[in-house]
Amino acid sequence: MARWGLVIVLAYALVALLTPLLVHAGWLSDPNAGLQNPIYAQPSLSHWCGTDRLGRDVCVRTLAGSGVALQVVLLALVIALLIGVPLGMVSGYLGGWVDRVLVLLMDTLYTLPVLLLSVVLAFLLGRGLPNAAAALCVVYIPQYFRVVRNQTAQVKAELFVEAAQSLGAGPIWILRRYLLRNVITSVPVLLTLNAADAVLVLGGLGFLGLGLPETIPEWGGDLQQALTAVPTGIWWTALYPGLAMFVLVLGLSFLGEGLESWLSGGSAQRTGS
């Protein structure tokens, strides 16, 4: 399963890299160009997935959407990682009231429905690529915070940390030397599973008319536009962007599950021997 996940994710990355090049070279039409095409044309040889309500090619837009989705999700998760991990370390290491306030805040954020939180932020920040990433990252900060904070609190109680402290090691040195490595091993699984989730949330934002500007081809936004045509039986504008999103999320989930069982299986063997 993990192998399939890897294949799918790599294929999407490849598509994301190649599509702009092919568009630039003229092999594919521009995802926003459509005025010379018939509108709502059925899939045919010239437009394999048909055209949408503005005559834009559905295939090209779906392919271009993978690059957009991967960019936003990657950016969002990097920001979440950069904020969540240090915050969790500080909170777990310091303890006391700082820790308690941060935990309450993060627990509250964590309780909120994912989409609701990013809807509020996306509503405020307006449309744009960095804005969408910022709206998404808030959802994932609490998750990294939790994992890192609990591990930090756990490691802090270990004897070797006390020994290092009594030898005069400062908190920053301890955090870097003893914690970062422990924490880093649990992050990849969370990162992959969160990426899967983030693709869905980004799609939801686009579907609500939030997130990215209209000029950027995005699956959720395209699906929102396809919705009005569904009752008339026009299926091609709705099918392909959603299918692309579904398969990417599937691939990322497979990869995440595979990583998880691989990492936990590996550690079980190590402790067993």
């Binding site: 939801g204 579907f207 009752p231 999103m245 579904f246």
Partner: peptide
């Protein structure tokens, strides 16, 4: 889990309500 809810709904709608 991987199905975008609103898209799954569109597909169901197409098959059972429209077609």
């Amino acid at each position: 889990y991987a199905l975008p809810p609103f898209w799954a709904a569109m597909v169901v709608q197409l098959v059972f309500a429209v077609w």
